[in-house]
Amino acid sequence: MAWTSAISRPTRWCCCARAAIPLRASGASILRACLEYDMVGLNRGSALLELTSRAAEQAGRPLRLRIQVRSFDAMCQMIAADLGVGVLPQAVCRAQAKALGLHMVGLSDAWASRRLLLATRSGVPLSIAARLLGEHLRQAGVP
């Protein structure tokens, strides 16, 4: 079975906190600074929680999950309510930072960068919904 990837987009993870929390560390120590606080995370089984848990283990620090939620928007709301800090895509945190008084610091670890791909099976016609999604993303300038 052959796959074709038509659209890809790089994303980076960041540590997101209330503006009052001093996340001034740089480089690989950013995650270590975040691990000093209670964490807001996604539900068990999410790829992000697995990545964050593994990174905390490699840093020799416990991941103190205070609350788990189902979406990035809910994470931002919980962080703004001072329930902890979280690891989120930079674009999500940036979109909510001003309205919720959040501060973000980009993570420089290798695991904190990913490329999202929209792939289809070669020779299999797309559904109308999938075709419309692809057209929308291309019109929005997603490479």
Results as ranks from 00 to 15, higher is better:
1 M>K: 08
1 M>I: 07
2 A>F: 06
2 A>R: 15
3 W>D: 10
4 T>I: 14
6 A>C: 05
7 I>W: 03
8 S>Y: 07
9 R>P: 00
10 P>K: 07
10 P>D: 13
11 T>I: 13
11 T>M: 11
13 W>C: 01
13 W>V: 02
16 C>Q: 02
17 A>L: 05
17 A>C: 12
17 A>E: 03
19 A>Y: 08
22 P>C: 02
22 P>K: 12
26 S>F: 01
27 G>D: 05
27 G>P: 05
28 A>I: 08
32 R>P: 03
33 A>M: 11
35 L>S: 06
35 L>W: 05
38 D>Y: 00
39 M>A: 13
39 M>G: 02
40 V>M: 05
40 V>D: 04
41 G>T: 15
41 G>C: 14
43 N>I: 07
43 N>T: 11
44 R>Q: 09
44 R>H: 08
45 G>I: 08
46 S>N: 08
47 A>Q: 12
47 A>M: 12
47 A>T: 12
48 L>F: 03
48 L>I: 09
48 L>P: 04
49 L>Y: 03
50 E>I: 09
51 L>D: 15
54 R>D: 09
54 R>H: 06
57 E>G: 01
58 Q>P: 00
59 A>S: 14
60 G>Q: 08
63 L>N: 04
63 L>C: 00
63 L>F: 05
64 R>I: 06
64 R>D: 07
66 R>V: 00
67 I>V: 15
67 I>Q: 10
68 Q>E: 15
68 Q>G: 10
69 V>E: 02
70 R>A: 14
70 R>L: 10
70 R>V: 07
75 M>G: 04
75 M>C: 10
76 C>L: 05
77 Q>A: 15
80 A>L: 03
81 A>S: 15
81 A>Q: 13
83 L>F: 14
85 V>M: 07
86 G>D: 07
86 G>N: 04
87 V>A: 07
88 L>C: 06
88 L>K: 03
89 P>K: 02
89 P>E: 07
90 Q>C: 11
90 Q>M: 06
90 Q>A: 08
90 Q>E: 14
91 A>H: 12
93 C>K: 04
94 R>S: 10
95 A>P: 03
96 Q>A: 14
96 Q>R: 15
98 K>M: 09
99 A>L: 10
99 A>S: 13
99 A>G: 04
99 A>W: 03
101 G>S: 02
101 G>I: 04
103 H>D: 08
104 M>K: 01
104 M>L: 15
106 G>K: 04
106 G>V: 08
106 G>S: 12
107 L>W: 00
107 L>N: 05
107 L>R: 01
107 L>P: 00
107 L>F: 00
108 S>Q: 13
114 R>H: 10
115 R>I: 15
118 L>M: 09
119 A>W: 02
119 A>P: 02
121 R>N: 02
121 R>W: 06
124 V>K: 12
125 P>R: 08
126 L>H: 02
127 S>T: 15
129 A>V: 10
130 A>R: 11
130 A>N: 13
131 R>Q: 14
132 L>Q: 15
133 L>Y: 05
134 G>P: 03
134 G>C: 12
137 L>Q: 06
138 R>T: 13
140 A>P: 03
140 A>D: 04
141 G>H: 04
142 V>H: 00
142 V>I: 14
143 P>G: 15
